[in-house]
Amino acid sequence: MAEKGKIDPMHQFEVQPIIEGFELFGQQINFTNSALWMFVVLGLIYLFMMGGMKRELVPGRWQIMVEGVVGFVDNIIATSIGPAGKKYTPWVFTLFMFILFANLLGMMPLGIIPGIHPFTVTSQFTVTGILAIISFSIVLIVGFWKHKLKFFSLFVPHGTPLPMIPLIFMVELLSFMVRPFSLALRLFVAMIAGHILIKVFANFVIQAIDAGGASILVAILSIIFIAFVSALELLVCAIQAYVFALLTSLYINDAENLH
C-alpha cells in the first residue's frame, strides 16, 4: 500500500527478508517471505503425499487423489518419452507438484486473515527461471552424454536440402536456445498477470465504494469480474503446472530419443 486508500498491485510480488541470514559466496542469504511460502508449499506437498502413503489395497479418497497425481505424471512421461523416461519421473513430478501447489496456494484467499500476506512463489522470474534452467541443463547433459556431438543433429531435421542446412541449423539452434526462457516466462507471466488483474479490480472495488453513490454498481461489477477471473486463474494454475511438466518431458524426449 503505497498511499493511503490506494492499492499497489505490485506490492504482493515484493520479496522482503523476514530473518537476516548469512553470507554465502559473497551473497547475502536472508530468510524471505518467498522462502517462507516455499516451505509452506513443501509442507503441503508432504502432507498431501502422506495421505497417499497408507498403501491400502482398497484406496480411500485421499489415496486415490495421490495415486491419480502420480499416475498423471507417469502418464505424461510414458507418452512423451516412453519407457526410457522412467528415470526422469522424479524431476517432472517435482516440477509439477511444486508449480501446482505454489500456484494454487497463491490463489488461496489467505489475505483475509490479518497478518498473513500470501505470496505466489511462481510469480518470481528467479524461481521459474531456475526451474527452467535445471530442466534445460538436464536436456543438455543427457543429450551430449548419450549422443556426444551427434546431438547437434537435433538442429537438422530429416530431409533438409543440403544448401539449406546452415540456415536451418541456425534457426533450430535459436529456437532451442529460447526454450528455457519461454518455459520460465510462460509460467511467470501467467501467474503475475492474473494476480495483477485481480488486484487492479480489487482496487476498483475500494475506490468505487469510497466514491459512493451510483459508482457502487462499478464495485458490484468488479466483484463479479474478480470472481470469474479467480475461477479462470484456478484453471490456469493447473494448466501452467501441466504445461511446464509436459514441455520439460518433451524437451527431455529430444535428448533421450534423438530422431
Binding site: 520479496v15 527478508p17 541470514g21 554465502l24 551473497q27 547475502q28 542469504i29 536472508n30 530468510f31 524471505t32 518467498s34 522462502a35 516455499m38 516451505f39 508449499v41 513443501l42 506437498i45 508432504y46 503425499m49 519421473t89 522424479p90 524431476w91 513430478f93 517435482t94 507438484m97 511444486f98 512463489v121 518470481q124 528467479t126 524461481v127 531456475i130 526451474l131 535445471i134
Partner: peptide, 21 residues
C-alpha cells in the same frame, strides 16, 4: 533477493526431489 531465492528454492526443490519424488 536473487541469492536468497536461489538458495532457498534449491533447498526446497532438493527436499521435494530426494525425499518425496
Amino acid at each position: 533477493v536473487y541469492g536468497s531465492q536461489f538458495f532457498w528454492l534449491l533447498i526446497v526443490i532438493g527436499i521435494i526431489y530426494f525425499f518425496i519424488a
